[in-house]
């Protein structure tokens, strides 16, 4: 065997996509169904494409559900490669313990926990999904989390599902209201999960205008780019009979 046959893959930094999903009682029915199918499709089928032959980063995911308390859907041993996620449908019931979720996330955002890597890690991407208002002492939990350096540097984007979501709370989580997106229909939710995940974790050539930004600015930029992209695609799909604009206001 020649030395050329003994090469190993290039070392690369880990980038973890954290998904925090509200599975409280108010999410039951259509909403949790939509989240389940959107997450399953995005993570099992669409996202593996971005991690295939990726020299920029080793992209991994960790998924947490929070309702009355919180738990990790992905193995508690740590984030898994995108292609290795086995999706189990989430069930909705209980309260909205966002504070507990923040404290649990704070614990895992550590080089000794979920961000352990000899090749180092990029600041993570954190996506929060919620349809209502927290029921526990979320301010305390968030305050603790905000002291975490990984969290400070993370891209943080929140997706408000329907109009009942407490957007002010979500904006506190992301650090800016510009990084909160409201969705009213299943298709947009699906598109958003996919596009936000791809955008936030993608490494492409920078334009000159792209100077060093705060994590909040970066999060806003991702949101802006995704919204523009969805609008552009929408122009194309206007007349093809899709249910993009279907109203599911009776959630």
């Amino acid at each position: 065997m020649s030395l050329l046959d003994q090469i190993a893959p290039a070392p690369k930094k880990v980038m973890v996509l954290f998904y925090l999903v509200d599975t409280s009682g108010s999410m039951s029915g259509d909403k949790i169904g939509a989240v389940n199918s959107a997450m399953e499709e995005a993570i099992v089928s669409d996202l593996p494409d971005i991690s295939s032959a990726n020299d920029d980063a080793d992209i991994r995911v960790a998924i947490m559900q929070f309702a009355s308390g919180c738990s990790w859907i992905t193995p508690t041993s740590g984030p898994v490669a995108i292609g290795d996620v086995v999706w189990t449908d989430l069930q909705a019931n209980g309260l909205t313990d966002l504070g507990a979720a923040c404290l649990e996330l704070d614990k895992k955002l550590s080089r000794h926990e979920y961000l352990q890597s000899i090749t180092g890690a990029y600041a993570p991407v954190i996506l929060l999904f919620s349809d209502g208002a927290p029921t526990d002492n979320w301010e305390n939990g968030l305050m603790t989390l905000q002291e975490n350096n990984w969290f400070k540097n993370a891209i943080k984007i929140a997706i408000a599902i329907g109009d009942d979501a407490e957007k002010g709370v979500l904006a506190k989580f992301t650090g800016t209201s510009e990084a909160v997106i409201t969705v009213h229909d299943k298709n947009t939710l699906k598109t958003l999960i996919r596009k936000v995940s791809v955008r936030a974790s993608e490494f492409q050539s920078h334009p000159k205008t792209d100077v060093i930004k705060t994590p909040e600015q970066e999060s806003q930029d991702v949101v802006k780019a995704v919204i523009t992209e969805i609008k552009e695609e929408n122009v194309n799909t206007d007349n093809d009979g899709s249910s993009f604009d279907e109203d599911w206001g009776d959630w």
């Binding site: 090469i7 893959p9 290039a10 690369k12």
Partner: peptide
């Protein structure tokens, strides 16, 4: 890129 890393679908190219 494929000379640097492989993927599940495609082994690293040598």
């Amino acid at each position: 890129t494929n000379f640097f890393v492989g993927s599940k679908k495609k082994p690293q190219v040598r």
